[in-house]
Design a protein around this nucleic acid. Sequence first.
DNA 1: TCACTAGTTTACGTTAACGTAAACGTCAAA
DNA 2: TTTGACGTTTACGTTAACGTAAACTAGTGA
Lengths: 133, 133
Amino acid sequence: MNQTYTISDLAREFDVTPRTIRYYEAEGLISPSRDGQRRIYTARDRARLSLVLRGKRLGFSLAEAKEIIDLYSAPQGEAFQLRTLLDKLDAKRALLEDKRRDLDAAISNMDRYAERCRERLRDLEDVNAEAAE
Amino acid sequence: MNQTYTISDLAREFDVTPRTIRYYEAEGLISPSRDGQRRIYTARDRARLSLVLRGKRLGFSLAEAKEIIDLYSAPQGEAFQLRTLLDKLDAKRALLEDKRRDLDAAISNMDRYAERCRERLRDLEDVNAEAAE
DNA sequence: TCACTAGTTTACGTTAACGTAAACGTCAAA
DNA sequence: TTTGACGTTTACGTTAACGTAAACTAGTGA
């Protein structure tokens, strides 16, 4: 439950360098605690790192990733805070949906093209079969 | 049908600078023809630019975008070429599917979190309603 | 003819996101 | 006790993807 990780634990698991993880800390994306001078990462730190890397894979800058991830750590004391949080979540969700539209278009585009290639390949093979008779 | 575009036509339409479009040409992503020294962009050039920008939005580097886009202009003469093309398309398609999994996870993650926020907000408002009686 | 608008090349500048190297601390095994 | 293995800070280096500025060309309306 209260498992912790060293910097190289996380570096290995997520296939990044320790430098990268320290850089994310300098940019305010992760805030590990310390044992003396050594960093100690909790499950929460690990989860945040995971979110950062996923954000990067989806084409977000570190600043954009931070904006999104920070929403998950936002205070939720009063109703007003909750409502503005929900508004912000909605805005970020719209960005993700935009990406999904792009992605779906890219995939179906590629699928249509591949299908045309397969048709053309069948035609070619038919011709070869005839020639072999 | 045979419509052409100037560099600033495309810059306006896709909300990038002419510099960006020239840079993509220098990187081999677009190859407009020329009228004297001025660039002339065809519908095909426009389509390639559109693909580049979509690739960027999805987190691909220009080099990765080029790899994908170039598949759409690959020669399809012989059956062997078509088969290797289909293999490459399949590999790129897998990359897109990876991104879709990431994206779907990000969205449903956010949805679950937002739902918890809404529940919490309802609870708060119930308490306020009781206190108002 | 002149000014304007839009295009061009060339080249140096900039920013995000790290890489890399140096110099140092610390702890366990040999 | 020394030698790795791992961690740290500091600081300069690097790359992709453009931005920016200068100096030039070519059509075009007043």
